[in-house]
Design a protein around this nucleic acid. Structure first.
Length: 109
DNA sequence: GCTTTGACTCTCG
DNA sequence: TCGAGAGCCAAAG
């Protein structure tokens, strides 16, 4: 599996997000110095460390990346799966697929 | 190599 | 406050 530089950067940033916290596509792209919000999502969609490898050691916690408005957004294995994972880490997701960004957002620094 | 697509975000009415 | 439209950039076709 070939991984582009762009994807690699996205993955590295994702891995910095601690358990119980989330980040946004916006934050990631901003940190990378571009505005390719959508490209970031794409990179994660094709992510080689997908949900099936989540129990593994070196996975990218892609479920911790959500929309900037607090909505959970999409997920390769369906939003349900994403929500489930988030909740399993102690993040409350209401039925509108929204979370408390203020409380859970992890800010890269 | 040009066109389309997408796990998004911003702006405007 | 809310919906529609435009803009963004990398990957895939």
């Amino acid at each position: 599996m070939k991984i582009t530089n762009f994807q690699k950067r996205v993955y590295e940033l994702c891995k910095k997000v601690p358990k119980g916290k989330v980040t946004t596509y916006k934050a990631i792209s901003k940190k990378m110095g571009v505005k390719a919000y959508r490209a970031v999502g794409m990179a994660l969609n094709k992510n080689p460390y997908g949900i099936l490898n989540y129990r593994g050691k070196n996975m990218v916690p892609c479920h911790r990346v959500i929309n900037s408005n607090g909505f959970v957004g999409q997920f390769a294995h369906g939003p349900k799966t994403k929500i489930k994972l988030l909740q399993s880490e102690g993040i409350f997701v209401n039925k509108n697929k929204m979370i408390n960004l203020k409380k859970y957002l992890f800010d890269f620094k």
